[in-house]
Design a protein around this nucleic acid. Structure first.
Length: 280
DNA sequence: TCCCAGGGTAGTC
DNA sequence: GACTACCATGGG
């Protein structure tokens, strides 16, 4: 077991995990088990220090985006003329954009459509338990995220029984497209962000918002700005926006924040949702 | 009971 | 191109 120790005021384990970009993690002893594909680690933040315990050091260094200059990123957002952005940047300064696996992110965000985060987590956990490999991280048992090939062998009823609802048919269709090589998730990584999103939305069940999330969380396309119901609400309430077409709202935000779009989006998404939690 | 959730598809005009 | 009904499920 290796231990990576990292000092930064721009890394908070809970804030990074709890902002809807990742669905497989589990709190323990003030820290978290974090799962990605068939790998696992333990993550804990104490003050400005963050500890990562894992076997595959290089994988998790990249996973937690340790090579990015978050002082610069957060600084950009803090100086924004938009009050909500600078405020969010201060409150959510420990949020980072993870570098997640392509297949896992694709299938996870297909589940996410018109759904709630706790329920997304439950469905993914049931899927891993049903199809993943049983593994151990220290004393902790966990299941790997199943491959597209494994998913492609199941029918619509299988996914319905796991609680997918109407998304079951999307899983069947997309799993077959990926498993058959009809689309190469690595191959499309060579494309421009616009072409990458176009390729992703060619899959049944992947629309513009889900494609934006995959581009951001699995391909690190930080010029993406996913617009969901929360962001649309924030756009109206905090930016006094008048556009109603989500594609145009995405375009507006991307033009406004350029190469920092993805980071700004996570800051404001986290802040807006945490506000709602405290109010209720 | 209705409303909503990290929306997308297919049909209509 | 834009508008809209419909899509499962579960929590508030």
């Amino acid at each position: 077991m290796k231990k990576i120790t990292f000092k930064s005021e721009y890394f908070n384990a809970q804030d990074t995990l709890d902002c809807g970009q990742i669905f497989r993690y589990k709190p323990i002893n003030g820290g978290f088990f974090v799962f990605s594909g068939d790998k696992a680690c333990f993550l804990k933040t104490v003050g400005e220090w963050t500890y990562i315990e894992c076997e595959d050091e290089e994988y998790f260094k990249n996973f937690f985006d340790l090579n990015q200059d978050y002082a610069k990123i957060n600084g950009f957002a803090k100086e924004s003329k938009h009050k909500i952005v600078s405020l969010s940047a201060k409150r959510a300064k420990g949020v980072r954009i993870l570098n997640q696996l392509k297949e896992e992110t694709l299938f996870s965000f297909i589940i996410s459509q018109n759904n709630r985060i706790p329920r997304i987590k439950d469905i993914i956990e049931r899927t891993c338990k049903a199809l993943g490999k049983k593994l151990k991280f220290g004393e902790e048992e966990y299941y790997s995220f199943p491959s597209a090939t494994d998913l492609a062998q199941k029918d619509e009823q299988f996914f319905k029984d796991l609680g997918y609802g109407y998304r079951a048919k999307y899983m069947v269709s997309v799993a077959k497209s990926v498993a058959s090589g009809q689309i190469s998730l690595d191959g499309i990584g060579l494309l421009s962000t616009a072409s990458l999103k176009k390729s992703l939305t060619s899959l049944t069940g992947v629309g513009p918002k889900v494609a934006d999330c995959i581009a951001l969380f699995a391909y690190h396309r930080v010029d993406s700005f996913p617009v969901d119901t929360w962001i649309e609400k924030l756009y109206r309430e905090d930016f006094c926006g008048t556009l109603t077409d989500r594609n145009k709202i995405t375009e507006w935000f991307s033009n406004e924040f350029g190469e920092y779009s993805g980071y700004v989006q996570q800051y404001v998404f986290y802040y807006k949702r945490s506000l709602e939690k405290y109010e209720n």
